[in-house]
């Protein structure tokens, strides 16, 4: 669900000009690049980092929502939330295998996440305090992710584009179930409506930050656009998200926590207030409310699952040996 503007910027190319020009010509002709094709080292490195961050985001993204599975208000909501969280796990797996085609190992990526070296979307370092947060996440966070991910279906790197097509197909249900939760609350009692408004207040700005730093401050963003890893800049996607989302919020009868938010007739788009980038960088650098807990929870899940992985491998090895022994005996 949750691609974010690449954190840390793209790499700079090192190969000779002839090689880079030939590669760029393939990109310009909209040819897809496949894993065994020649590619600039920086293209490979940028993709490993971007797909890795994206995969980690899916995996960590299970945690804030998983927090509410046991407390979902009805069986219908619980079944939907379980299915959604399972999808996020699946999306992480599609993405990890797309990254692996570039030569990075799964164990290495897991290690980088658990050691805190790898980044993931800053949005998951905010806590899910009420049930309405599950509605707001589906509506806003998945909504923002869809804006980001639809153009990634046309990414120049084949395995990433193919994984994104699968992800996008499954993503629409996520946003709709979230909006339905918000709608139910917004049409409910005063207390429920207040809960929905509170969730919108807390999730609106972090959702806008999901698109990553402003174009003016985003290092090497144009190299990723040139290589068609991304098709739109962070600011362009953010604007599209605001324009699509504000009418949906008005339909709910809720207010966005931005006094500067208003329709600009001339631009044919919504103007919105300045984003608190200090907060964004604070959270990215590990000082959000949940950074420590998220990694602690992932690490616990990994460590607690060790005996299962070990047992499965031992079982596979035992069966292999038995099969070999039976074969030798038969000969």
């Amino acid at each position: 669900m949750y691609a974010q503007g690449l954190l840390g910027g793209a790499e700079a190319a090192e190969e000779n000009e002839e090689f880079l020009a030939a590669f760029q010509a393939r990109i310009d002709a909209e040819e897809k690049i496949e894993p065994k094709d020649p590619m600039p080292a920086a293209y490979r490195k940028t993709l490993i980092r971007q797909i890795g961050q994206h995969a980690h985001s899916e995996i960590v993204g299970m945690l804030p929502e998983g927090n509410w599975i046991t407390r979902a208000p009805s069986l219908r909501r619980k079944a939907a939330l379980l299915a959604k969280v399972q999808d996020e796990g699946g999306h992480g797996l599609y993405l990890y295998s797309a990254a692996e085609t570039l030569g990075v190992s799964r164990d290495q990526m897991t290690e980088e996440l658990l050691s805190g070296k790898a980044k993931y979307s800053s949005i998951f370092n905010y806590p899910t305090l009420t049930w309405a947060d599950i509605g707001a996440i589906g509506w806003l966070v998945d909504g923002a992710a869809i804006m980001n991910q639809v153009p990634l279906c046309r990414c120049s790197f084949g395995p990433y584009a193919r994984a994104m097509i699968r992800v996008c197909k499954e993503e629409s249900f996520h946003q709709r179930q979230g909006y339905e939760i918000m709608l139910t609350l917004a049409r409910g009692s005063d207390a429920q409506k207040e809960m929905a408004q509170d969730a919108l207040n807390r999730w609106w700005w972090p959702s806008l930050m999901m698109f990553g730093p402003s174009d003016a401050d985003s290092e090497h963003s144009d190299q990723s656009v040139k290589w068609k890893i991304k098709r739109f800049t962070n600011d362009a996607l953010r604007q599209k998200f605001v324009d699509a989302t504000v009418p949906q919020g008005e339909f709910l009868g809720l207010t966005f926590p931005d006094p500067d938010l208003k329709w600009n007739e001339e631009r044919g788009a919504y103007d919105f207030g300045p984003i608190d980038w200090d907060e964004f960088w604070r959270v990215v650098k590990g000082h959000g409310r949940m950074n420590v807990d998220r990694i602690k929870d992932r690490k616990k899940a990994w460590d607690d699952g060790k005996w299962v992985r070990d047992a499965a491998l031992a079982h596979a090895e035992k069966r292999r040996q038995r099969k070999d022994a039976a074969k030798t005996a038969a000969e």
Binding site: A83, Q86, D87, G90, L93, Y94, S97, E100, R106, R162, A163, R166, E170, R309, A312, L313, H315, A316, R319, R320
Partner: peptide, 23 residues
């Protein structure tokens, strides 16, 4: 349709069902 990690063929089939055929 993609790839996945599994200790043996049987678990690979089970994981493929969960990862690639949820719908």
């Amino acid at each position: 349709c993609g790839s996945l990690h599994a200790p043996d063929a049987e678990m690979a089939i089970q994981a493929a069902r969960d990862v690639y055929t949820r719908r």
